[in-house]
Design a protein around this nucleic acid. Structure first.
Lengths: 222, 222
DNA sequence: TCCTCGATCAATGCATCCAATCAGTACTGT
DNA sequence: ACAGTACTGATTGGATGCATTGATCGAGGA
């Protein structure tokens, strides 16, 4: 039987809530409210929050409480830059190491992406997209890279949500996926790396653009 | 005044002890002994150990105690592979973004490396080497990358110790540093990336070689 | 109006206690 | 000799009490 410590349950629940956007960046996590919500004492809550802080999802500001991490544009850009590198690296390794079955799974994931893109279903696309990238991480043959990539991806997830609003993003994302899959299949390491990296970098650009626009728009409101 | 929580003191002390090799991989960290040593109760010890586990320096095996992480060769290889990528990335960004003062510091660090190499002082070289790489991380203009690189470097540190035994390692390391610094100075991003990456990769190769040799040697002893 | 001082209270760190659990081991019967 | 079992002690997760700290905010003064 899976012995699941309370602290881990809390950790997972909060992590999912943050990644899924049920808690927004900057939102306060009230310890006593969490105690009630999870029906436990401070100890497991505390441990969960500490764990989340280490993974970067929440920030504990001493004597002021714990908040869902709110990344500045610069901090976000730094993380995306590293994410791009990990993504490129994974694709490159993948192109060299992927096996038959995994390649097949990659194609399935790609088809799934295509399916939701055609339907214009961005939620569905989100999951297909996560699957596609997950296959690449799995097949890169580097377990540590897989973990790191997943972890960083989760941290960035709350901010990716905004990107869905970028017009035409899904269609272009799909096209990029095709390029990546193609390069992996044909074993072109260099091409795979560049495609994987650019796939992330392009999002940074669009994201910064989005933020800039949003700022210009909201600037007039104050 | 910076009030330093006990748990953090314990954490730092243990982390340094592990990184410096005063605790060896696989060694047990006895909680009750640590309580005595640091003169505090279980709570801060526990938190410190949990933090160290998250950063990968120790492994908590449920009901069996906490041990300094002992990485298998495969796990080690994965980490070095990622480290190489981060190192290459940092060097590439550095070549693009380093400023006058930082470039000067890089040269100082390089000279320091040269100094200790000539003296054949591997401990001194270790610190000069850390400085050299630290400058690159600082100057890469990506704070997140800086943190990640430092953190991964610490995890790998206990294993690097072995490398000092590789004959001629210091001399070649220095030569590699020169190539990296040169590429950064002249702004050749591509060259810097490759030099940075290879500088780590070469160590993996030598390390695996070392382990293999060591295994062959010790295999006869049992 | 703005600044300073002090009171208040939430947040925090730590110690300690309790209970559940599991690894390892000694023991038992076949 | 061996398989299965019961026991024991170490380890751990969790709860709670207590003292300390520092953020916050209002009163009083410049």
């Amino acid at each position: 039987m899976a012995r699941v410590p309370e602290s881990q349950r809390v950790r997972d629940a909060l992590e999912n809530a943050i990644v899924d956007g049920r808690y927004r960046p900057g939102e306060r996590l009230d310890p006593s409210q969490l105690e009630q919500q999870f029906g436990c004492s401070r100890t497991p809550i505390r441990e969960a929050l500490q764990a989340l802080e280490r993974s970067g999802l929440v920030s504990i500001r001493p004597k002021q409480g714990t908040y869902v991490t709110e990344l500045s544009l610069a901090e976000l850009a730094d993380r995306f830059e590293v994410m791009a590198e990990l993504e490129g690296m994974a694709a490159r390794l993948c192109a060299r190491r992927i096996d038959r079955g995994q390649l097949e799974e990659l194609h399935h994931a790609l088809q799934e992406c295509q399916l939701y893109e055609q339907k214009g279903d961005s939620d569905g696309y989100y999951y297909a997209n996560a699957w596609f990238h997950g296959v690449i991480y799995d097949a890169c043959g580097n377990e540590y890279l897989r973990q790191q990539a997943h972890s960083l991806r989760r941290v960035l997830q709350p901010y990716r949500r905004l990107q869905l609003r970028v017009p035409d993003r899904m269609r272009r994302s799909l096209a990029e996926h095709r390029v990546i899959a193609e390069a992996i299949e044909t074993g072109e390491t260099e091409a795979a790396e560049n495609a994987g990296r650019d796939h992330v970098l392009v999002q940074v650009k669009e994201f910064s653009q989005l933020v800039r626009t949003w700022r210009e728009v909201t600037a007039g409101n104050r």
